Simulated assay, not measured.
Amino acid sequence: MNDVIIAILRSGTPLVYVTLAGMIAQRAGVWNLGLEGIMIIGSCAIILGIMLTNSFWLAMLIAIVLCVLASVLLWFVIDRLKANPIIAGLGLTGLGIGGTALAVESIFGSQATVSAPFGAPKLGPAFGDYGVLSVFVPSMPFVVLGLWVLLRRTRFGLRLAACGEHPFAARSIGANPSRMRLIALCIGGVLCAVGGAELAAGSLQFFAQGMTSGRGFMAFAAVIFGAAHPIGSSFAALFFAVVGAIGIRAQLTFGDKVPQDLLQALPYLATILGVWLSGKLRGGAKAATGFAELKDQ
């Protein structure tokens, strides 16, 4: 049983962090489809940073800076250049996937898997079987709770929601929707860096081309499934992680009796089902008025 829980936490933790990034962007009125690209930038940066600096925390700083810069680029394109947010997000995803592959090939001369000598700090033997988990795993519930308090119980959170839902009215009280979008995307960049670092350095300690495998899009779906609520979206992300863990366990249990491709597709099928159920049962996370403002300007 502990093995299953550990597998769920390992696969679910990076997904939750990236989901929170998409959630806070949506609260500001931006559908962030660049999550996949920013996440893979964080994964690549943490491994290359560890190799070049021999320090995890310095590598973590490098990953955060690069992911925040990618988020600022997205803000600049959609807010200043008035590009369509959906197309801009997909473009950023392509830039992240292609850019990391190019970076690895430029440094090492090939696109082979790059391994780091060590990964993220672990909890240690004092936590028993769970000691193999990185420090980002137990930090995740506190980050979720902290964002819930920030977004639902503070003046900043109320202003952010106002800028996302009613940007024209928000301006009347002195709020600046453009600045709030920038802040939200930068916070999301930090969360994507943590999610990418947990994916690449939490247990694997390597970077491979395309290793995010659509997790950014799953996180985007979790935002919709969870109605852009910090806790609801996090549980949606963990639900997708549970389905993934069930698929892995089924591969070990049933072997060749069930097609491997079908079992591997379970998380993505659950993503589609979750988005459909969200639309049917509660309407999902409705497009904010701020999105219409970004399209029309």
Rank of each mutant, 00 (worst) to 15 (best):
A126S: 13
P259G: 04
C67E: 03
V144R: 10
L33H: 01
E165G: 11
P121F: 10
I187T: 09
C192L: 03
K286G: 07
L158K: 11
K280L: 14
L277Y: 06
S110R: 14
I231M: 05
F168K: 15
M51T: 13
T53L: 07
L69Y: 03
V190N: 09
S234M: 12
L199Q: 07
C163H: 04
A237P: 00
G283K: 02
F239S: 09
K286S: 14
S213N: 05
V137F: 01
L58S: 04
G94V: 09
M1L: 11
A25V: 01
G210W: 01
G109W: 01
K257C: 06
F220E: 10
G131M: 09
N32I: 00
N176F: 02
T100C: 10
P267L: 10
L81A: 10
V190T: 09
L182I: 15
V258H: 01
G283W: 08
A184G: 03
A83M: 10
V104Q: 08
C67I: 11
D3C: 03
I107T: 14
I46V: 08
G244N: 06
G232H: 12
V132H: 00
L133C: 12
A270S: 08
A270V: 00
G99M: 09
A120P: 04
V132L: 13
F108M: 12
S233Y: 09
N84K: 06
S71I: 00
L74E: 06
I78R: 00
I272R: 04
F136P: 14
R27P: 09
I78K: 01
D3M: 09
Y130V: 13
S178W: 01
G96Y: 11
N54C: 04
